[in-house]
Amino acid sequence: MPTLVWGACLRAAWPRPELAPFPGGAFAREGIVSLCCQLGADRDAVERAVDRVLPEADLLAVDGDELRLGAAVAALPAVVVEGLRRGHHLLPALTAGAQAGDEPASVVPPYEVPTDVEPAHEAPDGYVMRSVVATLETARRPVPWGGLPMLGDPAMRSMVEQALLPCGRQLLRTADGNWVTGFCDPVVEALVDEGVGTLAAEDRAVLALVLLHTVAIPRAQGRHRHSRWTGEGHTVTLAALASNRKISKTSMRAALRRLRAAGMVAETTTGRYLPGPALDRMSEARSNLLWEDLILVGRPDGQLAAAIRRRRGLAVAVLSDGGVAESPTETDRR
């Protein structure tokens, strides 16, 4: 089903096969859904492909009711684009007036490569490298290994890393073998010192609550066995988060909106919250610091928390009742 839907999207955004398919033009969501349903597809399956499957693969970009081709299309090898050109006339087409823009749909004959032009066997390395970087930097979630097979080539991987380095970015691989980019640790330190791109105190507190409920507590109960923050599907409701009386429900709702926009928190269709895809962009060192923060918050008077404080050079104040006073964690200082 996603293949049919993407074929219709590709034809709608790319009416002239002699041109490059990316970025293409915008087209209407309802036109694609109606076309696929007319071809016998199940409407729920079509909508699922449009709203979730294709955007997650970066083959489609969604902006309300307007759709465009995703950044992954820019990374298609030249031989794939050439094959799509040859079969362009077979792609399902919207009827006249159903697609966005002034140009109506038309019957396009089979594309033929001019006799004086050599067929492209492979794209230049520079083009492939830029396409890979564009795909990784615009992807909301880690890109599966199969989505960027060119990164299996050490030479291409080195080119991508060298291209990212002047921007302060680095190529990262998740525990699942997927690809993602993130800031280099020295750049993170510099941005934090300047207060650039950091979360407000209230947003950090709400993020800590989400991680406690969806990661730390399930992990302590033996239900979270994945090393990634987004590796399990444990969720928490707004009502459970609001049981923390230090933050009002209104402020918490506003903080969750900001965290969702930043990709730090995601929301399911049932109104439950879980860690967001931006956490996958952290390096292993930054991820370990966040794990330590949860220890400092969850069990501040434990031996492990004391060892973390000593290593970080944090002062520990002992209260009159023998407890440990709250001290700023790594997340708080950022």
Score class of each variant (00 low, 15 high):
C36S: 07
L60C: 04
R157V: 01
A105M: 12
L91I: 02
D44Y: 11
G146T: 05
H121D: 15
Q162F: 09
E66P: 02
E112W: 02
V113D: 10
R141Q: 14
D125I: 10
G126N: 07
G168T: 02
E122N: 08
H89D: 10
T135I: 04
P104Y: 03
E56T: 09
A78N: 01
V53Y: 06
W145Q: 14
V107P: 08
R85E: 12
Q162H: 11
Q38G: 14
V62I: 11
P119F: 11
L76R: 01
L91K: 00
P104C: 03
A93N: 01
R29G: 09
P109A: 09
G101L: 07
P166H: 01
L69E: 08
R157Y: 08
G70R: 02
L84F: 11
M129D: 11
V53D: 13
P124Y: 11
L35R: 13
L148Y: 07
L59C: 06
D65Y: 04
D63I: 05
M156H: 05
Q38T: 09
E66V: 15
L67C: 04
L165S: 13
R140H: 06
V132L: 13
P55E: 08
V80A: 14
G146L: 13
C37T: 13
R52C: 13
E66K: 06
P110C: 09
L151Q: 01
V62E: 04
V133K: 00
R130M: 12
R43L: 09
R157M: 13
L59F: 15
A71R: 05
V128L: 15
L165Q: 12
W145L: 15
V62M: 08
G146Q: 07
P114N: 06
A120T: 12
T138C: 08
A98N: 05
L76M: 13
A57N: 07
H88Q: 03
L91G: 03
L76Y: 10
M150H: 12
V46N: 02
E118L: 14
G146P: 05
D44I: 11
A72I: 10
A96S: 13
P109H: 00
V160D: 01
C36W: 07
D44Q: 13
P114G: 04
A72G: 09
G126P: 04
A61T: 11
V80W: 05
P109V: 02
L76I: 03
D51I: 03
A100M: 06
E56K: 09
V33F: 05
E161H: 06
